[in-house]
């Protein structure tokens, strides 16, 4: 009997670099041990993978390195449950399981020629990072690119080195904000949705992509609606507890849709079609 591709079987990889992003977020750069598989690993911006620490389990993370940069796969992991706590203990050279790519991706084809507004909060910057870098690597396909990124404190901002680089680029605009005043902080102060209102971007020919904590998303969607963004112009990603990652184990459904297989990327218009069970 012919063997069926096993969707539950992870590839074995090695952690090649660990970056302490914030007090509770680390980024791991991973390469697959099988060089051929690493070379042929194809994914789209926004797709996720299941990381395994054997003996503890799996958890889902977006591949936040862009498909245009293939020397490693990067994942950013906030310490929350038993799997993420164990991932935080991994060091360079440690083995790790990778199962993916899984799920859908940002509709970047449909965004071509448009202005792009990224709105991120905290760890929610991870999925935005992959798309932002992908767009910067295909810069001529897109119009004006703006990133509004906020966190509770300056220390809670991820990708600090890159933020510095992005801030210096003249082909994108970067607005950083933190929730309250901090000594030495010279950028904006205020919650992301409020800063967004203050910036008041025009929705004309623009797509807004937002990721962050649920409460931030809620108020950001409200602010975008006030600014006149249509539901088709707003894109976000959902999170759910996942196990199989391929739409079989049942738990991540919202009505008829499985966040793992039909998502994690949804337009606001698609979200509004789903029953309210977030």
């Amino acid at each position: 009997m012919a063997s069926i591709p096993n969707p539950y079987l992870p590839q074995i990889g090695t952690v090649v670099k660990v970056i302490q992003e914030t007090s509770n977020i680390k980024s791991l750069q991973v390469v697959l041990n099988d060089q051929e598989r690493m070379n042929s690993f194809r994914f789209e911006p926004g797709q996720v993978a299941q990381l395994s620490v054997f003996g503890v389990g799996e958890a889902t993370f977006v591949i936040n390195s862009p498909p245009t940069r293939t020397e490693h796969l990067q994942f950013s992991v906030m310490r929350a449950g038993e799997v993420t706590a164990r991932i935080h203990q991994l060091k360079e050279g440690d083995p790790i399981g990778v199962r993916g790519p899984l799920g859908n991706w940002f509709p970047y084809e449909e965004m071509k020629g448009k202005d792009i507004l990224f709105i991120g909060g905290g760890i929610g910057m991870a999925p935005l990072r992959t798309l932002l870098l992908f767009m910067l690597d295909n810069r001529s396909d897109y119009g004006k690119i703006t990133l509004l990124y906020g966190a509770r404190t300056p220390d809670d901002l991820c990708y600090k080195e890159e933020l510095q680089q992005w801030g210096q680029r003249d082909d994108m605009e970067l607005i950083l904000t933190v929730d309250r005043e901090f000594p030495g902080w010279e950028k904006k102060v205020g919650l992301v949705p409020n800063v967004l209102r203050e910036l008041a971007p025009s929705p004309k020919d623009k797509v807004a992509i937002t990721c962050g904590p649920p409460i931030m998303i809620r108020f950001t969607l409200q602010a975008l609606a006030e600014l006149g963004f249509g539901d088709e112009q707003v894109v976000t990603t959902l999170e759910r507890r996942m196990k199989c990652g391929v739409g079989l184990c049942g738990r991540c459904n919202i009505g008829t849709k499985y966040v793992c297989a039909d998502g994690p990327v949804f337009t606001l218009a698609q979200l509004k079609e789903l029953p309210p069970e977030l």
Binding site: Y8, S52, K243, C244, G250, R251
Partner: peptide
């Protein structure tokens, strides 16, 4: 058909198992 996947460890070795789960 809903199921769970858990790692059941015994020292340095173990298994990843699929077990029935319930919504």
């Amino acid at each position: 058909y809903c199921f769970n996947i858990t790692d059941e460890a015994a020292g340095l070795e173990g298994e990843r198992v699929r077990t029935w789960d319930s919504c």
